[in-house]
Design a protein around this nucleic acid. Sequence first.
DNA 1: TGACATTAGTCACAGGCAGTGACTAATTCG
DNA 2: CGAATTAGTCACTGCCTGTGACTAATGTCA
Lengths: 224, 224
Amino acid sequence: MSDRRVRKASYTIDLVLLTAVGGQLAVLLCRSPEGREKWMLPWDAARQAETMEATAARIAKTAGTGEPTWLEQVGAFGDAKRHPGESELSVGYAGLIPMGTPSPVGGVYAWFPVADVPQLTPRQRLMLDEAVKMIRGRMDQSPVAFRLLPQMFTLTELQQVYELLLAKRLHKASFRRALQAAWLVEPTDEWRSEGRGRPAQLYRYAPRKRRPAQRGIRLDLLSS
Amino acid sequence: MSDRRVRKASYTIDLVLLTAVGGQLAVLLCRSPEGREKWMLPWDAARQAETMEATAARIAKTAGTGEPTWLEQVGAFGDAKRHPGESELSVGYAGLIPMGTPSPVGGVYAWFPVADVPQLTPRQRLMLDEAVKMIRGRMDQSPVAFRLLPQMFTLTELQQVYELLLAKRLHKASFRRALQAAWLVEPTDEWRSEGRGRPAQLYRYAPRKRRPAQRGIRLDLLSS
DNA sequence: TGACATTAGTCACAGGCAGTGACTAATTCG
DNA sequence: CGAATTAGTCACTGCCTGTGACTAATGTCA
């Protein structure tokens, strides 16, 4: 975005940075130069000397959220939908920022709950929706939930992230049983007291090798 | 590709058409103008007046395989990897063609088993791998297996497609039990005799609404 | 100081689903 | 007609999952 008025980009890299704030998924938006109360996804023109992923990482760095703990391409979006840079094509990237990271200051960037986002251009709106869909769909295959948490976390916090992404309540005992079977976390020596109630032990993400599992076909997930 | 020598494309649409041939996944390649024994994924420059998906469909039509029964974007590929059109960026699409569709004639296009593909440019090789990975990963969420079959098929054929995509043997009784629970197919009145052995009933894909299912978290699928 | 509220963490039972092998059915081939 | 071959089903067993109730450890307040 630094030079979007200097040369017309052949295509842009747009970034959907997500985090968890107050029990909700939130996306980082940036004030648009077109109007004080207009917002947009952060973006920049692609550069030849830089991979697309590097461009996305640089945009995140500029936004001041720290480096994303996870970054993946969402796809290419064109097809006559408008874009803040009027570019022909935009490549969207989704990134995750651990919850609790200090908010960017200065008023140029801000987090918005994904359920309540101001108006975006159609193309960016589509990218946001696809990014959220991708994160939710990737939960079973990638440790995305852990990328939304700090290095150490309680099992209740982990469960809350899963509930947030799955948009459904989970039973505590079931969740922990599945977690134990998957060998994904290991306990630390530390405990955290959250005011009232028994203190919770802190865990860290530490996946271990295990049997190929892979039991059973799941034909019942087809979205018909 | 029709005009790749006329104007330099700002970006291209590349197509990974897949089908099942002889118990293997196969991809459609096109002879490269650079040499008689050079092959490439079919592609064309993007056009402003056309959506990317429409471009992909048109490329498939040109190749003479009939319209793909499924089409989805794989992603955008750039990053200095070479491409037959020397384009800066390529958007890859994956498409499925039902098995048994007559092969394209003329010698310009041909099916190659994905396990034994001639050399491609690095970018196209990457697109092919990602497309195959995507198809395999999408099996649980989309009826891609049915898109590789003709409209009517036997349950044994369906199971073979699943085994092909999952790269693993399935137990007949388990497979059919899961299939029944998912309400995905319905029997027709027709039967097919494949030479020796009892004739098999033909089924068609006919998904029905069913309970949200969605039972249980599966943390044991995380890939590491 | 002791009962209560609150949160963490575990257990055990019941029901359902999946892996498995064996069974029956219908056809071709010799 | 019997053997071989492929389709299709059944029933048993063991594992996994949903569930509620239980214990543990802390803060709060009378």
